[in-house]
Amino acid sequence: MLELQGLTKTYKTGDTALSDVSFSVPKGQIVGLIGPSGAGKSTLIRCINRLVEPTSGRIVLGGRDLTGLGVRDLRAQRRRIGMIFQEYALVERLSVMENVLSGRLGYVGFWASFTRRFPPADIQRAYRLLDRVGLMTHADKRADALSGGQRQRVGIARALAQEPELLLVDEPTASLDPKTSRQIMRLLVEICTESGLPAIVNIHDVPLAQQFMQRIIGLRAGQVVFDGTPAQLTESALTEIYGSEDWTAMRKGHEDDKDAEADALRRLSVLPA
């Protein structure tokens, strides 16, 4: 269970990215975070594991306040939070296995990690996760030899290797094509439901959010302006989040895509087989 209380972040440049954000995420819930560009979605996610230091407010994960922890305690708490990044953020020159095992770094000492001698249980878990995301045969490949979708699967395996109590996901599909995006989202949702893992998924694509999320939070200019189920996310709610102009443009873009797709299909169908 994660609880945010009055979270505020003002960057050194004076941008207030978050102002007084409060909500809680119960066990097993998958929350989609939507909002226009610059609304503060990434900032919110990065504040939770303190990659970005919040200006004020409290972050409580399973009864522990994460704000104001010292370096050592912060390390121990960060292991409880898995993070998945938009551009995968794998260490490109390490092997897939090393990338997955790096999720255990918070648990093993420096020497063991330096010599790559992880405990047998960790290695077993890493293999199981690689199998789960369908990359068993790629364990000894270098990460930069994988495709985008495969890299994101490694990213998922790395986050899960931490045995987290919370998953933070920052635009997991923004660098992927629509089909792979769906596959990745489905995998994420399956894994979360299997183990009752709560997740906050920052996502650009509204239809994708509506399809996969149980709850949606809309952020605008650093403030929560919507909090409800996908069914409650009506036209007017979306206009409230994105502003009327942006939302119309977005929907139009979407329809254009659909039109183009339909058009392409039509053309293909008239081609001689």
Binding site: L51, R78, V91, R104
Partner: peptide, 25 residues
């Protein structure tokens, strides 16, 4: 920086971040 952040986010110590994120690069 993203690779460094990703390793930091796993709860790795400074030395481990150096070893896993910066040295390979």
């Amino acid at each position: 920086i993203r690779q460094v952040e990703a390793i930091t986010a796993t709860g790795a110590s400074q030395a481990q971040v150096l070893n896993y994120a910066i040295v390979p690069q």
